[in-house]
Write a protein that binds this DNA or RNA. Structure first.
Lengths: 210, 210
DNA sequence: ACTAATTAAATATCTAGTTAGTTAATAACG
DNA sequence: CGTTATTAACTAACTAGATATTTAATTAGT
C-alpha cells in the first residue's frame, strides 16, 4: 500500500504543471483551455484530473508555488545578518529571482492583481501578506538603526513589485517592438531594472526623494 | 437618409459600453460574458451586436477609449508652457485622472500588459507608444534646460504607470483588508500615491537617486 | 409609412469534467 | 526465477452545460 509514484508519473505531472503555467500566463484562468494544456504536455486531458483535481485546483497550485517561493525567500532575506540597506537590495533581488525563474510569474501576478486576488485561497493570500509584513520589519529595523525614515510598507512594496512585474512581463513585447524599430521603447535587461528599483527604493527609505 | 440616432439609443449604447467595461475589468476578455453585460445594461443581448459588431469589437472600443484619452491628455501636457518639472507632475496627474475617471482602466490595463497587448489594434497601440514618446520629449526638454539627467523614457514611464495602476486596481481590496484588520496593508488614497510617484519620478530625472 | 431600436428564440460551437476501459510496472508468492 | 495479482498511469470517447452570434419578428419614434 501507498506505493511511491513512478518516475514517469512525476515527469508527467511536472509537464502538466509547466504547460498549464504557460497557458494560464498567456490567456488567463478563464481563457485557458485544458485540452490545450494536455496537448502541450503530450498527455491525455484526463491526466489533468488524475494528477490535479480540477482546472481550478491546478491553477491554485501554480499560484501557491509562486507566492510561497517569494514568501520563504524574502523571509530568509529578513533573517540574514547584514545592513538594512543590503536587506532592501536583497529583498528586491529575491522577488526578481523567483519571478525570473518562472516565466509565467509576472503575467499571472498582473492578472491576479487585476482580479483582486479572487483565485487566491486563504493560505496563499497569507503568504502574499507575509511578504509585505517582512518588508515592514526590514523598514522598522532600518528606522531603529537611524538609517531609514518611517514609510508605509505597502506603498514601498507596490513601488518595488509593480514596476518589476511590468518590466518582466513586457520584456518579450518590448524586444519585438525594438526590432520593429521603436526607439524609445528600448530593450531594458532585467539587471538594469532590478538595479534601478533597488536605488529607487533606498532613496525613498532614506528620505532622499522629498 | 442617415438620420441622427435617437437619444434613447445613445443611452443604450452608453449603458452597454459601461456594463461591458465593468465586466471586462472584473473578468478579463475571455471570462466576460455577453449575457451578463446585456443584463447589467438592462437590454437584450442582441443589442450588443446591433451597436457594436462583436464582443471583440466592443472590447477594442473600450481599449481605444482608454488609450486615446491618455494619449491626447498627455499631449496637451507636453504642449503647455511651464517648467519641465511641472510637466512631469502634470504627466503623472493626467494619467491618474484619466484612470480614476474610468474604474475599469487599471484592471484592463494590467490584463493587457499580462497578455502582451494582443487585443490592441495597430492604431490603439500607436497611441500607447505616443504616450512614452511624449514623456521622452518632456525629458529631453528638461535635459536641454539643464534640469534633468538623460534617462530611458520607457524605464521612467514604467516607474510611473505600473505602481499607479497597481495602487488604483488594488484600492478596493486593500480597503477590505484594512477593515478585516490587516495593519501594514493600509488604505492609501490615490492623492498620496500620485504625490509619491511625482516626487519619485522627479528624483530619478534630477539624478537624485544614484 | 418608414425605419431605428429592440426582443425572443434558435443555432452552432466549444469546453470542463466523466467514464469505462487498456497498458505496464511492480510486488508478492510459489 | 518466473508467474500472477494489483494498481498506477494512461487513453478515447462521451456528456452536459455554456456561450457567442444570428435570425426573424415586433415595437415605437418621426
Amino acid at each position: 500500500m501507498a506505493r511511491p509514484p513512478r518516475s514517469a508519473s512525476v515527469d508527467s505531472r511536472r509537464r502538466l504543471f509547466e504547460a498549464a503555467a504557460a497557458e494560464f500566463a498567456a490567456r488567463g484562468y478563464a481563457g485557458a483551455n485544458v485540452d490545450r494544456i494536455a496537448r502541450a504536455a503530450r498527455l491525455n486531458k484526463a491526466m489533468i484530473y488524475y494528477h490535479f483535481k480540477s482546472k481550478a485546483a491546478l491553477y491554485r497550485e501554480i499560484l501557491r508555488d509562486m507566492f510561497t517561493a517569494v514568501g520563504t525567500r524574502v523571509a530568509d532575506v529578513a533573517a540574514a545578518s547584514c545592513t538594512p540597506e543590503d536587506k532592501v537590495r536583497a529583498f528586491v533581488e529575491a522577488i526578481a529571482a523567483e519571478a525570473e525563474a518562472r516565466p509565467h510569474f509576472p503575467p499571472i501576478w498582473l492578472r491576479e492583481i487585476a482580479e483582486g486576488g479572487g483565485h487566491l485561497d486563504a493560505a496563499t493570500l497569507n503568504y502574499a501578506r507575509a511578504v509585505v509584513a517582512t518588508l515592514g520589519r526590514i523598514i522598522e529595523e532600518g528606522c531603529r538603526a537611524g538609517r531609514f525614515k518611517p514609510a508605509q510598507p505597502m506603498l514601498v512594496h507596490g513601488g518595488i513589485i509593480a514596476p518589476l512585474m511590468f518590466f518582466l512581463a513586457t520584456a518579450r513585447v518590448r524586444r519585438k517592438m525594438q526590432r520593429a524599430g521603436a526607439a524609445g521603447v528600448a530593450d531594458i535587461p532585467p539587471k538594469v531594472v532590478v538595479a534601478h528599483i533597488q536605488r529607487l527604493t533606498l532613496a525613498v527609505l532614506e528620505g532622499r526623494i522629498a
